[in-house]
Write a protein that binds this DNA or RNA. Structure first.
Length: 499
RNA sequence: GGUCCUGUGGCCGAGUGGCUAGGCAGAGCUCUGCAAAAGCUUCUACACCAGUUCGAAUCUGGUCGGGACCUCCA
């Protein structure tokens, strides 16, 4: 069964074949560290973490590159041409790089909370000014960019004319054509610098008050946003690489510009498979600064936001995201998150129960059920290979959960399933839940706490034996108040979990 | 205005022609000192109208609604 990926470029699901056998190059647009990450940002990084994990599981040697945009882009291109990062830095009375460091650290912390594996290379825009300048020089030399007042602009019209003949028109990714755009692009002041409204900045002349600035052949300035990804992707993944990921909102103009720049520079279209995740919405509206509806990750984890009924654990968010398809919008809501929280807990407990099942029977007592479960397990792979349908894998898992619990609680005969089936379940659940989905249930595994709880459980047991239900209920109820749930198992033992 | 996506039961959300998606919530039952947990059973659905078809949530056309991008954006 080959892996199929929906390619935004062709708008079809394609069988994934890497450029070089056994190796995969993957680039994902990282955060702009001028502020705190919010819930919306969680989506691409979790989505592509699963992609990365799965490719590695398939045995590929993957180089995963995810940039940090620390040079800022324009607030309003052509009008004020201010660097977003330095503007805010003045307000906060911080050095620009201090601000960048602060939010980079916070971002890394959040990624860790989500159990995302770090990329292999995490290049910064400011660390690759030289490469960006080099790329811009090449584009100018080839005649696809021009210099005006210390700024450099990409000549979209010329590019479109020449490369349309080669089947690479400007707009190929986002499915729009240049002529229509020219009519609809908004009027900007400072427009006279550009030959064409659709042209975009490769390098921007820095006004005196601009703090972040670098020397260049065109004077002091700073790079345009789009060029950083092209420069860093080329440097670390080559002139052509396998997968480029990012949010759908980056498709135009960011990714479109990347294609144009890289194609001019490297004489080849840069990316084989473009993958775009959809947005997280709140009341049906995209979460974003401009809509003033963001829930920061720190607020989410602590519950400190008016829209939140409670704090949500990072794993709840991860599970919530995996329960939908990455190309669909996902609507935030307390009810939805609490559903995910409970569902994940239930799945995890069943998973733990599964690992404890130990049986010897070669033959399944219930052949039909045994067969059905084998089919559902086989579908895990089928679904994930179908453009990463994590939601369907989880649905299948939940079909199997009752069977696991029933065997564990002896509501089903111990020999219901065959030894091989149980072994396969144990192996595949571990593979998908932990390795591919990157889920883990974080409990306070404090030994002292466990001993104390065990003591309370023992006291309660003695009280129950004496039919002193007042005492036994007191222990159970008050522990519940403290967030510890006691469960009387069928075999007489008592287990607990943290709510 | 242009390009594109979307409308599924109380909530979230799979699903592209015929098969129970799944989770949470609700109802009933079993187990239990009681409860919880667990298991079993169960209710609520495909925006609207027309068409194609033996058959449509799924395809086509239209109507209405929501959204994204066209400007920084995950």
């Amino acid at each position: 069964m080959p892996l199929k990926i929906y390619n935004s470029l062709t708008r079809t699901k394609e069988i994934f074949e890497p450029l070089n056998k056994g190796y995969v190059g993957m680039y994902v647009c990282g955060p702009t560290v001028s502020g705190e990450s919010h819930l919306g940002h969680a989506r691409p990084y979790i989505t592509f973490d699963v992609v990365y994990r799965y490719l590695k599981h398939l045995g590929y040697q993957v180089r995963y590159v995810r940039n940090i945009t620390d040079a800022g882009h324009f607030e309003e291109e052509g009008r004020v041409a201010e660097d977003k990062i330095s503007t805010k830095a003045i307000l906060e009375k911080l050095e620009p790089m201090e601000l960048v460091q602060k939010y980079t650290n916070l971002f890394h912390w959040a990624m860790k909370q989500f159990n995302n594996i770090e990329p292999n290379i995490e290049p910064t825009a400011t660390g690759h000014i030289v490469e960006q300048i080099g790329m811009i020089e090449k584009i100018i030399a080839d005649g696809y960019a021009y210099v005006v007042n210390g700024s450099v602009y990409f000549d979209v019209n010329k590019y479109n004319e020449d490369f349309s003949k080669k089947g690479l028109p400007y707009g190929i990714l986002s499915g729009r054509n240049l002529e229509e755009q020219l009519d609809t692009t908004r009027d900007l002041d400072n427009q006279h610098e550009k030959r064409n409204k659709a042209d975009f900045a490769l390098w921007k002349n820095a006004p005196p008050e601009h703090i972040m600035r670098w020397q260049s052949p065109w004077g002091e300035g700073f790079p345009g946003w789009h060029i950083e990804c092209s420069a860093m992707a080329t440097k670390y993944l080559g002139t052509q690489f396998d997968i480029h990921g990012g949010g759908m909102d980056l498709q135009f103009p960011h990714h479109e510009c990347e294609i144009a720049q890289s194609t001019v520079c490297n004489h080849t279209a840069p990316v084989r498979y473009w993958m775009h995740n959809n947005m997280i919405t709140i009341n049906g509206r995209k979460m974003g600064k401009s809509y003033n509806n963001v829930i920061k990750l720190t607020e989410l984890f602590t519950g400190s936001h008016p829209l939140l009924e409670k704090a949500y654990h990072p794993m709840t968010i991860r599970f919530f995201i995996l329960q939908s398809h990455y190309r669909s919008t996902l609507d935030f809501g307390n009810e939805a998150l609490q559903a995910s929280e409970k569902a994940f807990k239930r799945l995890w407990e069943a998973y733990e129960n599964l690992q404890k099942i130990s049986i010897d029977n070669i033959e399944a007592a219930d052949v039909e059920l045994d067969k059905k479960i084998n089919k559902q397990i086989a579908e895990f792979t089928e679904f994930i290979e179908d453009d990463f349908s994590t939601a369907k894998v989880l649905a299948n898992m939940f079909e199997i959960v009752p069977v696991i619990n029933a065997i564990k609680n002896k509501q089903l005969a111990q020999n219901t399933l065959s030894k091989n089936t149980i072994a396969l379940m144990q192996q595949q659940f571990t593979l998908f839940i932990e390795e591919i989905f990157g889920l883990k249930f974080q409990e306070d595994n404090n030994e002292k706490l466990s001993d104390i709880l065990q003591l309370l459980v023992d006291i309660r047991k003695e009280a129950k034996a004496k039919k002193d239900f007042v005492t036994s209920d007191k222990i159970r109820n008050e522990l519940a108040q403290l967030g510890v749930l006691l469960k009387d198992e069928k075999d007489g033992t008592v287990s607990w979990s943290f709510i």
